[in-house]
């Protein structure tokens, strides 16, 4: 029994521009991309500038800052998103690296107060050998 993992197993991959990992969120239904909040990623304990992260979903590529406006595009509950990080040379194939990720997913239909909604915190930590 493994369950759903925020960072998918064996998903760290070295790329020409840096590296990428595949990420899922832990909730029972799909949510609009506008509900993703405060994504933080670090590699080997060093926080990555969010401006260097691209978010691949549904065949589209977005900057994290663009997601806020995407109320009509959903992150399907079964799909991993690919987080592409632009840090050339940071990760080489065959190297082990520790990745830590956290982000919130706002449940836009579960009120916790006037104008406030439940935000589900997703956290994942994994050490993976890069492909």
């Amino acid at each position: 029994m493994s369950g759903v993992k925020v960072i998918e197993d064996n998903s760290l991959r070295a790329t020409p521009s840096g590296f990428e990992v595949r990420v899922r969120f832990k909730w029972y239904r799909s949510l609009p991309l506008s509900c993703l909040e405060d994504l933080r990623l670090s590699i080997d304990g060093e926080p990555v500038d969010p401006g260097l992260i691209k978010f691949h979903i549904n065949g589209h590529v977005y900057r994290l800052s663009e997601l806020t406006e995407l109320v009509e595009e959903n992150w399907f509950v079964l799909d991993p998103a690919i987080l592409e990080v632009e840090l050339p040379g940071k990760v080489k194939p065959g190297e082990p690296h520790q990745i830590d990720i956290s982000f919130g997913m706002r449940a836009p239909y579960i009120r916790t107060g006037p104008g406030d909604f439940l935000t589900v915190i997703n956290r994942g930590s994994a050490t993976q050998v890069a492909a």
């Binding site: 239904r29 609009p32 506008s34 509900c35 909040e37 806020t68 109320v71 706002r106 449940a107 836009p108 239909y109 009120r111 104008g115 909604f117």
Partner: peptide, 12 residues
Amino acid sequence: GNCDVGRHRERL
């Protein structure tokens, strides 16, 4: 169904 009234970050 769901009424995602909070899907915009800044407003209902």
